[in-house]
Design a binder for these strands. Structure first.
Lengths: 330, 330
DNA sequence: ACTGATTATGAAAATGTTTTCAATGATTAT
DNA sequence: ATAATCATTGAAAACATTTTCATAATCAGT
């Protein structure tokens, strides 16, 4: 089982390498008759171009590196779906790297994508960006940052405006005179949490008040439920906002356990809709976050940068759409 | 900003390419003093080897292709985590391809991984394997198949034994004289559903009975809930088994809506534990499926094949661990 | 001081493409 | 018929490595 290279195709069809290469790449200059002959040879021999050799000759790989925290994969796997779908359309391949917090050395990952000579890097950064990422900037590699607002020559960013969402949410309650709004925060000091904070604070400031309704919990689901279970024994809130769907579920179960009815006694709102927030009863009012789009748009931006198309907006802000549930019935 | 190649390093450190190459690859023959000189030059110039050129020269890329249905990413994202973690340990990179049912042409994906000259392919196949996958076999590319039992020269497989799980589950109820066991099946005729079926049927056959407790529902969560809502109006079951967590949640909500208490009136069992089955109350008895291991083991097998280590077991069968919840209280 | 063995290095070929430039053959206009 | 243009093709360099084979340098043993 010998390897079939462009040489074998050339010999088989009695032309030079150059011509075969032209046929592969759809160059228009080659005569119809020769093209046919070459194509037949290609099929007959089952030849497939070697992307590695192409990469070397062209100094580009039509490959983009994706760097994403492992937690985010289970949390928002559709990001990857959107990203890959668009990549496929534009004939790019995806080189995947996951970051496991406390384990992975980001430097190694950066080293690896540079070694691999990816044409660009898309990075999902729900934390502050590591300094080492700036290495990529020095390398002049086109970058798209998801979930973080970054601006620079070679960097685009795509993010969800949680700040605005929470701002408007708080504003609408404050207008109705409701100011007992609790916001659940997990310890991880992530971008979304910060945005939610500043949204709430801004809204309250507008009404001349200071916001301080944070409830801090740990990342772990079991302990979150335990905590809330005892929390709701002595606490009541008119409005309760959670970031992740599992936290909202925990809140729902913990509160109803104490006879607090959602939404009559307490409005429960989740910042990230999922199949779970909608399959539970009562349904949990949630923000639908366009995670698929987040990935898709990021990759589209990347292809624009790589093909030197005009990038009108270097910062793309997506909105989370509020989908309130009015009743416990359906 | 000139590109730094091995040539520049060679010049800077006054040695030949060959020597620099040896230093990069940790060859033992180079003199300590020269090694130092070369390493200094590498650091000074910020040189990173070009994996593409290496790939060409060595005819291997230390890269494995991962082919996975997009739905499986959100369903079992931890597969990817396990896979990537192990890949990192063995210095392999992951080339990601997603399959969107009805959209993606598998042939194109196969073409692409062949073009990319990945050293091996890991494919998550919860459906029957497409014929085109056999192309890979002809190409003699080492493969690991997840979720499907396949045997062949160059193919290993790693799967979860849902059949055994359901068999034992049914058996234990039948021994107690309980035979009213309903199994929810979504339309997609996938491997897991089939395994569950044959597990149930085998158990019933052992007791001289024929199993026919399937309930067919659509894939869509909303309509599943709707369906179950009206289903539980007129139906009762002692045991109710669902495959996916969202289906179990829907079943829980729909049944309690009609005053059916879990687990007193009906045992509810989910074949795939998730943070949702455990954060809901009453907790849903579930099988903990080692998804992380599924990925990790697959990749480990792959590295063994690629490094020509001995592969003792070409088929690795993982067990789903039953975690029954005895009470509605906690 | 010389031989043989050993260690360290370099020259050059090989990996599989693309692309530039030159050359050839065909076609058109004069 | 001839020059000029145009369409098609091929030779060879370039891409950045690894590796084989040969050679140079060192060293030990006589």
């Amino acid at each position: 089982m010998k390897k079939i290279t462009i040489y074998e195709v050339a010999r088989e069809s009695n032309v030079s390498l150059a011509t075969v290469s032209r046929v592969i790449n759809g160059s228009s200059v080659v005569k119809e008759e020769t093209r046919k002959r070459v194509e037949e040879a290609i099929n007959k021999l089952g030849y497939r171009p070697n992307a590695i050799a192409q990469g070397l000759a062209l100094s580009k790989t039509t490959t983009v590196g994706l760097i994403i925290p492992s937690t985010s994969i289970s949390f928002s796997g559709r990001v990857i779906n959107g990203l890959c779908d668009v990549a496929k359309i534009y004939d790019y391949s995806v080189y995947l790297h996951t970051i496991t917090e406390g384990v992975t050395d980001i430097k190694e990952i950066i080293d690896d994508v540079i070694k691999a000579r990816v044409d660009g890097v898309i990075i999902y950064a729900d934390k502050d960006l590591d300094d080492s990422v700036k290495l990529l900037e020095e390398y002049n590699i086109p970058m798209v940052v998801m979930c973080n607002r970054v601006s620079s020559e070679n960097i685009c960013s795509v993010f969800v405006d949680y700040k605005k969402a929470v701002y408007e949410l708080c504003e609408s309650y404050l207008q109705k005179g409701i100011e007992d709004i609790a916001i659940l925060q997990d310890h991880r000091n992530d971008v979304v949490s910060n945005l939610m904070r500043s949204g709430a604070e801004e809204a309250f400031r507008k009404f001349g008040k200071e916001y301080k309704g944070y409830i801090e919990v740990s990342k772990d689901n079991r302990s979150t439920y335990k905590f809330l279970k005892s929390y709701f024994k002595n606490h009541k809130h008119q409005v309760f906002v959670a970031n992740r769907d599992s936290q909202a579920l925990a809140a729902l179960n913990a509160s109803t356990g104490h006879g607090i009815k959602v939404p009559e006694d307490m409005e429960l709102i989740c910042m990230n809709e999922s199949k779970y927030t909608s399959s539970v009863r009562p349904e949990i009012s949630s923000y639908v976050v366009p995670t698929y789009d987040l990935g898709a748009i990021s990759m589209r931006l990347m292809t624009k940068m790589l093909k030197d198309e005009q990038v009108e907006e270097k910062e793309k802000c997506l909105n989370a759409i509020y989908s309130p549930k009015a009743t416990t019935k359906d």
